[in-house]
Amino acid sequence: MTTRPRPKVAFFDFTSCEGCQLTVVDLLQDHPELLDAVEIVEFREAMSEKLPLDERYTIAFVEGSCTRASDEARLKSIRERADFLIALGACADLGGVNTIRNVMPLQEVREYVYGDKADWYETYPARPIKAVVKVDAAIPGCPIDRNEFAKAVTHLLQGRLPNLPDYPLCIECKALGTVCMYQRGQACLGPVTRAGCGAICPAVGYGCEGCRGFVPSPNLASMREVMREAGVGDEEIESRLRIFLTYQMMKLEGVTS
């Protein structure tokens, strides 16, 4: 084995459940060789050290979405210090579940969440980190798939951007031989969702909720029609499309939040 310089890798989190970072911690248990390949310089889940301020991160993985104006400054400073900035998981990549609230008036959301203390908390429409800074690549999913994370790291180590699937989930689902959810009388967002998770939800009997984001050109009109035919009501269709995909939907359909 030729020795390669170990890139400096850091993990950061914004508004998220930290599930993606935990997936990385999990991966480290099984693949300690990751630590031979990279030098982890900041990772709140696993260590307290920090990289000296005058040094650069080779790769910064960012989990979570921006939900406050004050998030932006911190994110921008990470961007400035990072050669590669990679969105880690659905919240960072898509805005994720945090964006569900974007379709409701903000004051209502604040009152719902914080009650009469609403005005004490600073918040604004949630957004993916790419809405704030340039993002080099994303590792999709809620949470991320550990094998896909490892694969992305090998690509980065090779000095290139991660090359992850963006074809529809059905491709993976059919390869597994799963009986389609529509043939079991349930709806599934697989035809418009990008693959890479191994189509795990249909494999265990749930329709895909689109946590990995849309394929590059989703045919939404047709997807809605398919769900309608499967007996899903209009309201239910819209709420399904808004679990993970609110921000992408608003962009695609030209609605601004």
Binding site: E33, D36, I171, G190, S217, N219, E225
Partner: peptide, 29 residues
């Protein structure tokens, strides 16, 4: 109306087109 989901070609007995990719371990070796 097509969703470009590819399900039709996946189940077809005569479709054989494939993609080729490389996978390496974390040592890149």
């Amino acid at each position: 109306i097509c969703l470009a989901c590819g399900a039709c070609t996946q189940v077809c007995p005569t479709c054989y087109c494939f993609d080729v990719t490389d996978e390496v371990d974390l040592t890149l070796t």
